Simulated scan of single mutants.
Amino acid sequence: MTFPKSSWFLPFLFFLCCNISISFASDHITFNNSLSGNQTISSQGGKFELGFFQLGNRSASSNYYLGIWYKKVSEFTPVWIANRNTPISDSNTSELRILATGNLALLDYKNTQIWSTNISSLRSNSTICTLLDTGNLVLQYSSNQTATLLWQSVDYPTNTWLPGGKLGRSKAIGKHRMVSRKNSDDPAEGIYSIEIDPNGSSQFFIYWNRLRPYWTSGEWNGKTFTNVPEMQENYQYNF
C-alpha cells in the first residue's frame, strides 16, 4: 500500500490513531478510561446522563458531585448521587475510574478515595460500568458472555426511587432506604428517611432523624396499604 507524500498526511494519521485509542463508548467506563471534568456518559437511549455537576448558585459554590440525572428533562434533576455527603472541590482534578481491584471509585486530586462500590471479593480489573436507560448504573464482569451483575446503583438510592429499585433489607447490603435532601441547594442527607419496618412487617415507615416514626403506610394486604385509603377506590397503578 502506497501512502500519499503530502506533508499533512502523516500528522493527520497520527492524530486519527491517537483519537481512536483514547475514545471510549458513550454508555460505559472500563479500566482503560476514566471520567473527569465535563466528560459524561449517556445511557444508550439517551434518557440518563452520568457526570460531575454543581447545584444551587454555581458561581458561589465550590462543591461538585458525581451523579446521574435526566438528560432530556429541561430542569436539571439528579436521581442518584455517589458523594452526596462528601462533595469534591474540583471536578477537573478528580476522576471516576475502575481500580485494579475491579471496583468503581471516585478519587479526588490527592488520589483519595471519596466513594467506591467497595466489593471486597473482586480481584480483577476486568469489569465494566454501564449506565442503563432505566437510570441504573451497573458494574459487571466484562469478559462474561452472560454478564454477572456485581453492583447496581438502584440498590443504594439517594432521595429518588427509580423503577427496579428496592426498599427493604438484605443480608448482603443491609438496609435499602431513601433519605431526603438537606435542601434544594445541598443534596446531603436530610432529616427524613423511608424504609421497611425493621420488625419484619410489610409496612413502610417514614422516620424523622432516623429514629422517630413520622408516618406509616400500614400493612400490605396484597393489593393496598391499610393506611392509604386512596388505593382502595379506582386504584390504577401496581405498587
Results as ranks from 00 to 15, higher is better:
Thr146Phe: 12
Ile114Tyr: 02
Pro157Cys: 03
Thr112His: 11
Trp208Pro: 00
Ile20Tyr: 15
Tyr156Val: 09
Thr130Arg: 11
Ser126Thr: 08
Gly51Trp: 05
Asn103Pro: 13
Cys129Met: 11
Val228Phe: 02
Arg123Tyr: 14
Gly200Tyr: 01
Thr148Ile: 09
Val138Ser: 03
Trp161Tyr: 10
Ser202Ala: 04
Arg97Ile: 08
Ser59Tyr: 15
Pro163Phe: 09
Asn63Leu: 06
Asn63Gln: 06
Pro87Leu: 03
Asp155Tyr: 08
Ile68Gln: 06
Asn92Leu: 14
Gly168Ser: 01
Asp186Ile: 04
Asp197Ile: 00
Gln203Pro: 02
Ala60Gln: 15
Arg210Ile: 06
Pro187Val: 08
Lys166Asn: 15
Tyr141Leu: 08
Asn38Glu: 12
Ser201Trp: 02
Tyr70His: 04
Gly51Gln: 03
Ile114Asn: 05
Asp155Met: 12
Ala172Lys: 14
Phe239Leu: 08
Pro187Gln: 07
Gly102Asn: 14
Ser7Cys: 04
Val79Pro: 02
Ile114Ser: 03
Ala100Met: 14
Leu50Trp: 06
Trp151Ile: 05
Ser21Cys: 04
Asn118Glu: 15
Pro198Leu: 09
Ile68Ala: 09
Glu95Arg: 15
Gln44Ala: 12
Ser170Ile: 07
Val179Asn: 01
Ile98Phe: 04
Asn118Val: 07
Phe204Met: 08
Thr130Gly: 00
Ile173Cys: 03
Tyr156His: 11
Tyr109Gln: 14
Gln203Trp: 02
Ser217Ile: 00
Arg97Thr: 05
Ser43Phe: 09
Met231Trp: 09
Glu219Asn: 14
Gly200Cys: 01
Ser23Thr: 13
Gln54Pro: 04
Thr117Met: 04
Phe76Trp: 05
Pro213Ile: 06
Leu149Asp: 00
Asn183Ser: 06
Ser121Gly: 03
Gly218Thr: 05
Cys129Ser: 15
Arg212Thr: 09
Phe31Trp: 12
Thr226Asp: 09
Thr112Gly: 02
Glu195Lys: 08
Asp186Thr: 08
Thr93Ile: 13
Gly190Pro: 03
Leu16Ala: 15
Asp155Arg: 06
Lys171His: 10
Ser124Ile: 10
Thr224Arg: 00
Ser120Lys: 15
Ser89Gly: 14
Leu162Tyr: 07
Pro213Val: 02
Asn136Lys: 11
Val228Trp: 00
Phe12Arg: 13
